[in-house]
């Protein structure tokens, strides 16, 4: 033991590389060592649970007793479940309407991208909704929408109309919640574009101006192409935000009235973990569907990013 260390210690000037394996491969090993903690936790807390839930989705299980193998029974039941289709439809609505946050964020960012005294204050005011918790946003909008004392009710009454009960009407409720969700999401997109606008090169704008580009044309052909990275990130976070919309629904309606504002993530929670739920298998099946929808988008984004990187190199 002591022998080995003593020969290793002093000189390694001979032709034979006497350094330890680690010393020889330091450069190759080091990144993995640094990555290891993250990887281990990623596997334990993200990858394994994914496969676990996929596995559970083939069982009928209340979380307590024996799990009963039902094969694809849960998925077959899903095909015949009105609530599931309502949730799926609402998820699509969320995806489509949530996209409004991207152009809206862009225009607010363009508007705020000027040098006026006190601009920082205005910027932070516009950014404010993103800072407050979704729960608070949900609560505030619940009060807004209240037909008896909310601002919406007051406006309607001012025009002499009977105020609608936005969160109590199956045709309006999802739009109401999405609108509330848009408020912080627009702020998020805005901040992404604001940082993007900082990197827009003044020379190109100048050059465009010399070529007589103005207004929309300037925006479309000169500014927007340079904002492509920001647009990409804004779309990614908005898509993911739309698919995982949960807090707003939990706070504002709990999926109600009678399940019409449900989305997949909340429906999963409701069937698997809420007071009247504990159908772990069925909940997992819903989670699996949501997972594959997300996987579709995420792989597209990753692929897209990969292509960009390749070009960049």
């Amino acid at each position: 033991m002591s022998d080995v260390t003593s020969t290793n210690m002093p000189s390694a000037s001979g032709t034979v590389d006497r350094r330890s394996w680690y010393a020889k491969n330091k450069l190759r090993v080091a990144p993995w060592l640094f990555l290891a903690p993250a990887l281990i936790f990623f596997v334990i807390y993200v990858v394994l649970p994914i496969f676990q839930s996929l596995w559970i989705s083939f069982f009928e299980w209340d979380g307590l007793g024996e799990a009963k193998w039902v094969g694809v029974g849960n998925y077959i039941e899903l095909m015949d479940d009105d609530r599931f289709y309502t949730s799926l439809y609402n998820n699509v609505l969320w995806l489509v309407l949530y996209m409004l946050a991207v152009p809206a964020g862009l225009f607010i960012a363009l508007f705020l991208n000027q040098t006026v005294t006190g601009m920082r204050i205005y910027k932070s005011l516009f950014f404010f909704p993103f800072v407050i918790s979704q729960v608070v946003v949900g609560l505030i909008f619940t009060w807004f929408y209240n037909p008896n004392f909310g601002i919406v009710g007051k406006i309607w009454q001012f025009f002499g109309a009977a105020p609608p009960s936005i969160l109590g009407d199956e045709n309006l409720v999802t739009y109401g919640i999405i609108f509330a969700g848009l408020w912080p999401q627009i702020a998020y997109c805005m901040i992404l574009y604001l940082t993007g606008l900082n990197n827009v090169s003044p020379d190109q704008v100048e050059a465009g101006r010399l070529d007589n580009a103005k207004g929309w044309k300037m925006l479309w052909y000169v500014v927007l192409p340079q904002l492509k990275p920001a647009t990409f990130i804004a779309i990614v976070v908005t898509v993911i935000g739309a698919l995982r919309s949960f807090d707003m629904i939990a706070i504002m309606t709990q999926g109600g009235p009678y399940g019409t504002s449900n989305v997949l993530s909340y429906y999963m929670f409701e069937t698997a973990l809420s007071e009247y739920g504990f159908r772990m298998g069925y909940g997992s099946a819903i989670a699996a569907v949501l997972f594959f929808i997300m996987l579709f988008f995420i792989s597209y984004f990753l692929w897209n990013m990969y292509q960009e990187e390749k070009v960049g190199r």
Binding site: G168, E170, G256, P257, Y258, G259, E270, E275, Y276, G277, F278, R279
Partner: peptide
């Protein structure tokens, strides 16, 4: 109702009652 009926039935039933009261 939600103690006498099993949880899943109770949930579906009560949603039905709410829907009935509105429509």
């Amino acid at each position: 109702f939600d103690r006498d009926a099993p949880a899943e039935m109770a949930k579906a039933g009560m949603e039905g009652f709410q829907e009935f009261m509105i429509k």
